[in-house]
Amino acid sequence: MPEHEQDGQEREFDLRWADRAEHKEPSARARMLAARWKHNPPDPVPFRPDPDHRSSGRRSWSPWISTAIVLGSIAAVILLLGYLDFRAPY
Rank of each mutant, 00 (worst) to 15 (best):
residue 74 I to C: 07
residue 39 H to V: 07
residue 49 P to H: 08
residue 61 W to T: 10
residue 38 K to W: 07
residue 43 D to Q: 12
residue 43 D to H: 10
residue 52 D to T: 15
residue 77 V to S: 01
residue 48 R to M: 04
residue 64 W to M: 03
residue 71 L to H: 04
residue 48 R to L: 08
residue 56 S to R: 15
residue 80 L to T: 11
residue 50 D to E: 08
residue 42 P to D: 03
residue 65 I to L: 08
residue 53 H to T: 07
residue 30 A to W: 13
residue 34 A to Q: 15
residue 58 R to P: 03
residue 63 P to K: 11
residue 35 A to M: 14
residue 69 I to V: 14
residue 47 F to E: 07
residue 52 D to V: 10
residue 45 V to Y: 07
residue 55 S to H: 11
residue 41 P to T: 10
residue 66 S to K: 02
residue 75 A to Q: 05
residue 34 A to C: 10
residue 59 R to N: 07
residue 69 I to N: 02
residue 65 I to G: 01
residue 65 I to D: 03
residue 63 P to D: 12
residue 35 A to I: 07
residue 44 P to K: 06
residue 32 M to L: 13
residue 42 P to Y: 04
residue 43 D to T: 09
residue 67 T to L: 14
residue 70 V to D: 00
residue 75 A to W: 12
residue 57 G to P: 09
residue 37 W to F: 15
residue 51 P to W: 02
residue 57 G to H: 05
residue 76 A to N: 00
residue 40 N to D: 12
residue 41 P to M: 10
residue 36 R to S: 11
residue 31 R to K: 15
residue 74 I to P: 00
residue 51 P to C: 01
residue 34 A to N: 13
residue 64 W to T: 05
residue 51 P to D: 03
residue 60 S to Y: 04
residue 78 I to S: 01
residue 55 S to N: 07
residue 58 R to D: 09
residue 51 P to A: 03
residue 48 R to E: 02
residue 78 I to R: 02
residue 44 P to L: 04
residue 39 H to D: 14
residue 76 A to R: 00
residue 45 V to I: 15
residue 76 A to H: 00
residue 60 S to L: 06
residue 41 P to Y: 12
residue 50 D to F: 11
residue 54 R to F: 05
residue 40 N to I: 13
residue 36 R to Y: 13
residue 75 A to P: 01
residue 74 I to D: 01
residue 77 V to Q: 00
residue 51 P to H: 02
residue 57 G to C: 08
residue 37 W to T: 02
residue 50 D to G: 04
residue 30 A to K: 15
